[in-house]
Amino acid sequence: MRLSISHQTTYRYDDQVRASIQYLRLTPHDSERQKVLSWHLDLPRPVRAQIDPFGNILHVLSLEEPHEAIIIGARGQVDIDETREAEHEVGSALPFLRFTRLTEADEAIREFSSRQCRKRTDRSALIDLMHALNQHIAYTPGATEVHTSAAEAFAGRTGVCQDHAHAFVACARSLGIPARYVSGYLCSEDADHLSSHAWAEAWLDDAWYSFDVTNRLAVPERHLKLAVGLDYLDACPVRGMRRGGGGEYMHAKVVVSTAPRVITQMQVQHQ
C-alpha cells in the first residue's frame, strides 16, 4: 500500500512570542515494513536532522526572533508492506520495561492485565488484552488531555488513541513484556477516527508486534510509523516550548490518501 501524507499544523498566539523551540518527530524512516519514497518538511527555516535516543528522526526548530505564528508542514509518500506482522531491530528492548508517569501501572491495571492474560505472555494473550482494553476504555474525543496518565484514563474508562496506547503499554510492562508508544498515521475510512494516530508495540519472540487498541488491529497494514518512545512525550510529532505569546491557538490538518483516491481527511481546531 502506498500512502501519501499531507500534514500542516499552525500555531497562533494572542501576543508576540519572544522565542520558541519545537521538537519535531515528523519524519518516518525506512524499516522492514515501510519504505520512504519521498518526504519534505515545510518549516520557517532550514533545520538539520538528527537521531534521538530511540532512533527517531528529530528536527529541532528554534526561533529566536519575535513571532506571532508558526506553520509546520510535512508531506511525502511511503510504501507499506501490508503482509508484515513484525519488525526486527538491533537495539535492546529492555529499556521499554521502564514505567513513566504516563504509563505507570497501578493496582487496578496490574489486576486487569493478570486477569485478562492469566499468566500467558504470548501474542495471543496480548491480542486478548487489546480487545479487553478497547471495551474498558471507550473512545471519547475530548475526554482526556495530553498529560492524562494510563491509570487516570483506565479509571475514567474514556479516552482517545493516546490513552489506549498508554494503557496497553502499562499493562504489558506490568506483565514483564517490553512495550513502547508509537506515533504515526492511519489510513482509515472511518471519519470518527483521526488520521494522526497512536498505537503500541510489544517485544515478543525477538521482534516488535503492533497492537492498535483503538481499532482492535494486531496487523499494522494501514499504519505509517513516525516515532517510538516510552510514552507520548518521547514520540509525539510536535512538542515545544516558548517565552511569551499569551493564549495559543492550534489548527491542524492531516490528509492521508492512497493514490489516486483520498481515504481520510481530518481537521482539528482548538485553543
Rank of each mutant, 00 (worst) to 15 (best):
I263Q: 11
L58W: 12
Q265C: 11
E68W: 03
A218S: 11
L41K: 06
A86Y: 11
H193K: 13
G91F: 14
S124T: 15
T100K: 04
I127C: 13
Q8T: 09
W39Y: 08
E82R: 14
A86S: 15
V90H: 06
F211E: 02
L102C: 01
V219C: 12
P260F: 09
L186V: 03
K35G: 03
R2T: 13
D205V: 09
N56L: 04
W199K: 04
D52W: 09
T100S: 15
T100V: 08
R98H: 06
W199V: 06
E65H: 14
E87S: 07
W199H: 04
P260S: 13
R222Q: 07
I72R: 02
Q269V: 13
D128A: 15
Q22E: 02
N56V: 05
S174L: 11
L126K: 10
A259C: 08
N215G: 03
H147I: 14
R157N: 01
H131A: 09
V238H: 01
G156L: 11
H251N: 14
P66N: 10
S124E: 14
A170F: 12
V228S: 10
R48M: 03
R84I: 02
S114W: 08
I51A: 14
L217H: 05
D122P: 10
I80N: 00
Y23F: 12
D79N: 08
E248D: 07
L204W: 11
D106N: 14
D190N: 09
A167D: 01
R123H: 05
S149G: 04
L94F: 07
V262C: 11
T158K: 15
W208H: 03
L58F: 14
V254H: 08
T121N: 13
T121V: 15
L24H: 07
E32H: 10
H136M: 00
D79K: 09
G247Y: 11
Q8D: 03
S113H: 07
H7N: 07
G55F: 08
V60C: 11
D128V: 08
R180H: 03
D122R: 07
D212S: 05
K119C: 00
A105L: 09
A151M: 04
D234F: 05
S38A: 12
A74P: 10
D128G: 10
R48N: 09
Y11W: 04
L129F: 05
I263E: 13
H29F: 01
E201F: 09
A165I: 04
E65G: 06
H166T: 03
A153M: 06
R261C: 14
G247S: 12
A235Y: 01
S196H: 02
D14P: 00
D163T: 01
R33V: 00
L58Y: 13
S195M: 06
L233I: 09
L224S: 04
L63S: 12
L26T: 03
D234A: 12
H147F: 10
L204A: 08
A19R: 15
D231P: 13
L126I: 00
L175Y: 05
